[in-house]
Computed example of a mutant assay.
Amino acid sequence: MTTTDPFAGGTRRVAVVTGGSRGIGRAVSRRLADDGLAVVVNYVGDDAAAAETVGAITASGGQAVAVRADVADETAVAALFDRAETEYGGVDVVVNCAARLALSPIAELDLDVLDRLHRTNIRGAFVVAQQAARRLRAGGALVGFSTSVVGTQFPGYGAYVASKGAVEAITLILARELRGRDVTVNAVAPGPTATELFLDGKTEEQVEALAKAPPLERLGSPEDIADVVAFLAGPRGRWVNGQVLRANGGLV
């Protein structure tokens, strides 16, 4: 049987990165561009951040375009993938970084906040996974995002962890549903990572304590996580499928 190697020369591979304009998403967008992929940088509201991310990629010789879409809106997400196909000819990598974070004891959480968080983190993850399952080309990869707090079970993270547990639950199922397509499905579960989303609302003492928790005694950087995503999306990660990779410096 003869097959075509999707990683061998020729057509540029294409990535869609949701939440790709800031934080880990920006680092992922830039890393994939450095690896030679054309990147569709999805964002929901910050035009300036999206333009800055695209500008950084193109200034370094890469290809990128910014596309606004709410990941929980199936019509908008379908249009996002349409744009990727129109602009660059197809989709090879999908990285779903878009997420909300709300910290509160379960007994005190405003249920409207819960609904908004789960709309983005669960419905959004499902909508993006649907489009990825329908459109990824052979040799493709879907990388979702969970959190290492699914394991550490820190108080105050109940709503967020519930939403990320859903991401972990569908990862292996979708990998199995895509049998025969030569498409991998994995999730990355970062530990404490120095992003605006993580640092917001925390005291210096809290941040210092979290930085000391892993054996490596530091916070992760967005680039640390982007390196893991690049591995899963590239040729060296093809035998990893249906897995949740905890990128957290040894935090348990």
Rank of each mutant, 00 (worst) to 15 (best):
T3Q: 12
A27W: 03
R123K: 15
A78F: 00
E85P: 01
D82G: 04
A125Y: 09
I225E: 02
R100E: 11
G36W: 03
A48C: 04
D182N: 15
T86S: 13
L136A: 07
I122Y: 00
S104A: 15
A169T: 13
V95E: 10
G9V: 05
R116A: 15
L103K: 10
G180D: 10
S21W: 00
A27S: 12
S29Q: 09
Q153L: 15
D227R: 14
A211E: 11
A27R: 09
I170Q: 15
E85H: 07
D35K: 05
P235C: 01
G180Y: 08
D46R: 07
A187T: 14
R68M: 06
V93H: 01
R236H: 01
G23D: 08
A189W: 03
A27F: 07
R135G: 10
V244H: 00
D110C: 07
D227Q: 14
A166H: 08
L219S: 10
G201K: 03
Q206L: 04
S21N: 13
V143M: 07
A166D: 01
Q243Y: 02
A59D: 15
R22T: 15
L114N: 00
L109K: 00
G23L: 05
A48Y: 00
D110E: 13
D200H: 13
Y160A: 08
T4G: 08
D35V: 05
I57E: 10
R134T: 09
N186E: 10
L101N: 13
F81W: 03
E87A: 12
A133W: 03
V228K: 00
R176C: 05
A107V: 12
G220A: 14
T4M: 10
G9K: 11
R83W: 01
T18K: 04
P235E: 12
I24T: 10
G158V: 12
N121T: 02
V67S: 00
P214A: 12
R123Y: 03
D92S: 06
V150A: 08
V39S: 02
V17L: 04
G25F: 01
I225N: 06
T75K: 11
L37M: 02
T4K: 11
V71E: 05
Y157A: 13
F126D: 05
V40F: 07
T58M: 06
G89N: 07
G191R: 07
Y43C: 04
S221T: 15
A194I: 07
G165K: 01
T18S: 13
R179Y: 09
A138G: 05
G20N: 04
F231I: 05
S163W: 03
S221V: 03
S148D: 15
L178A: 06
A72I: 02
A175M: 11
L136Q: 02
A194H: 05
G250T: 12
L136N: 02
I106H: 14
E223L: 11
A8F: 05
G62R: 09
D70C: 06
V54H: 10
A84D: 01
